[in-house]
Design a binder for these strands. Structure first.
Length: 494
RNA sequence: GUCCCCAUCGUCUAGUCAGGUCCAGGACAUCGGCCUUUCACGCCGACAACACCGGUUCAAAUCCGGUUGGGGACGCCA
């Protein structure tokens, strides 16, 4: 049994988007499952559209997701001599021929066919040129491209798709496609096959948009006398209007980078992506990395395309609600120490990180994260909604400010009074802080909720949060007292 | 226009290959309820789908044919 070898060959013409990420993930999973290798190959033969920035974006994106590769990145342009040699072989063996039709001519024909609603294929005018004619045109300096000569056969051309099953089409339906440009540069269909042969790729898992390419490439493998790899075409990811997802028409929301920048947990996002078009055949939705590698299978990939369910300008969900749901799940259930590492990066970016959180205050740090994470959706929430736990420099939300504080001007004396009592407490415990607050409320003949909600507001800036006295202990006596005493400042602003 | 592919709740899907256990199960979202000093979490419940038409069969979401709908491809892009 030979080693399985897979590849992820993005063209560096934009950032890594979720469709590409899903393709990379499925290839990665299959490689890991079979103990094979994953090759990263940058297909940069379209020099006009390829950019270094894009290459970096793709590599960073894979890195963030944790999709590692065993070989590469290789660059397709580094193998141009291989591609040209292959085209020569095809030319000499008669599997390909020179075509002298000009681009303008072809474009005109295509447009005419489109307008007339006729088939758009190449009319094969140069297919049967004699040696003399070819030489004459060459001598005359007429530019030519190299076209693959689709065999003149009656039967069906086909292959067994791991996902879709047997795929077939009549030879007569396939165009004599161009494999080398008139400037001598080989094209994708050829380069891709030559590289896959050289890289000894055994399984090609790619988007359904390549299905017609595959039919053509099957002939290329045959002409190049190379064994055919196993193909599997993944249904595309569509938007809610069922249009193919692309960076161009959908913007940031489909870029992997968006999820990194918005506080998503890498594995949560992989898990979401994996379930977008695949299921284990049961009700399981959450998979650890090991489980997913073990349970993943090409055969269970759904044949119909999945919709990435995000709604533009939705006030409640910045992206597909299910993606957020997966993120929340991991946020709440992952090992707290691991979460601690991730939140650390967020705190550092906001200048809120303190070294003691990794040493003498480590227990406090992790306990605090455990206390507040239940209500959060992304890693970003720790520095926004949870800012008051790490800094005095937090914003008090206007809604609770109006509702819980400004509505009761007497709080300007009540809260400082509570602060004074907290200062006097012999033991600053859950029971003692709650008792003190309730006693004060009773003395004042007000509902404890008034005091408690006001506390929550000035201490955390938020309308909602964990149990108030857990908060008090987490934030600590000194800070709580200071914030309670400072309540007057909110009234002055009005 | 031609070719290829697909079709179960709003979304992701189980069930389809081996027809009956499915008047279709789970999850997200939505809506209600419980819990609660708040808000979440959690728990409980509700809403909600086999695209359509024919055929085969004692029996069809499942098999066959057609229709419709959707997607993809048809580049000297990848």
């Amino acid at each position: 049994m030979t080693e399985t070898r897979l590849r992820f060959p993005p063209s560096p013409t934009g950032y890594l988007h979720i469709g590409g990420a899903r393709t990379a993930l499925y290839n990665w999973l299959y490689a890991k499952q079979t103990g094979g290798k994953l090759v990263l190959r940058i297909e940069d033969t379209d020099t006009g559209r390829s950019s270094a920035e894009s290459i970096k974006g793709i590599i960073d994106g894979l890195d963030w997701l944790g999709i590692d590769y065993d070989e590469g990145p290789y660059f397709q342009t580094d193998f141009e001599t291989d591609h040209i040699a292959a085209s020569q072989r095809l030319l000499t063996s008669g599997a390909a021929y020179k075509c002298f039709c000009s681009k303008e001519e072809l474009d005109a024909k295509r447009e005419a066919a489109l307008a007339a609603k006729k088939p758009l294929g190449y009319d094969r005018s140069c297919r049967n040129l004699s040696t003399e004619e070819i030489t004459a045109k060459d001598v005359a300096g007429i530019p030519s491209v190299v076209r693959f000569k689709v065999p003149d056969r009656n039967g069906l051309l086909g292959y067994d798709d791991k996902i879709f099953g047997r795929i077939e089409a009549a030879y007569s339906e396939i165009d004599d496609f161009v494999i080398v440009r008139s400037n001598g540069k080989p094209l994708y269909l050829l380069c891709n096959v030559v590289d896959d042969i050289r890289d000894r790729i055994t399984h090609i898992i790619r988007g359904q948009d390549h299905m017609t390419n595959t039919l053509k490439q099957v002939m290329l493998y045959e002409a190049l006398k190379a064994p055919l790899p196993i193909f599997g075409h993944m249904p595309l990811t569509l938007d809610t209007k069922k249009a193919k997802i692309s960076k161009r028409s959908h913007g940031e929301i489909v870029a992997v980078q968006f999820y990194r920048d918005n506080g998503f947990i890498p594995w949560a996002f992989n898990n979401f992506l994996a379930l977008l078009g695949w299921s284990a055949g049961n009700d399981q939705e959450f998979f650890s990395k090991e489980e997913l590698i073990r349970d993943f299978s090409l055969e269970r990939i759904n044949k119909s395309s999945a919709i990435f369910n995000y709604k533009k300008d939705d006030p409640k969900f910045i992206t597909d609600p299910k993606a957020i749901y997966f993120n929340e799940h991991y946020l709440r259930t992952m090992a707290i120490s691991e979460l601690g590492q991730m939140v650390r990066k967020e705190l550092e970016a906001e200048n809120l990180w303190q070294e003691c959180y990794a040493s003498d205050r480590k227990v406090w740090y992790l306990d605090t994260l455990a206390l507040i994470r239940d209500r959060f959706h992304t890693l970003k929430d720790f520095t926004s909604l949870g800012r008051a736990y790490f800094s005095d420099n937090f914003i008090v939300d206007s809604k609770p400010l109006d509702k819980n504080v400004l509505k009761f001007p007497e709080l300007q004396t009540w809260l400082p009074e509570l602060a004074a009592r907290y200062e006097m407490l012999a033991e600053f415990t859950l029971e003692a802080t709650e008792k003190a607050a309730r006693e004060l409320a009773e003395e004042l003949a007000i509902k404890p909720g008034i005091l408690i909600n006001a506390m929550r507001t000035v201490v955390t800036g938020q309308l909602a949060g964990p149990s108030m006295f857990d908060i008090v202990l987490a934030i600590g006596r000194e800070t709580v007292v200071r914030r309670l005493r400072d309540v007057g400042k909110y009234f002055k602003l009005v």
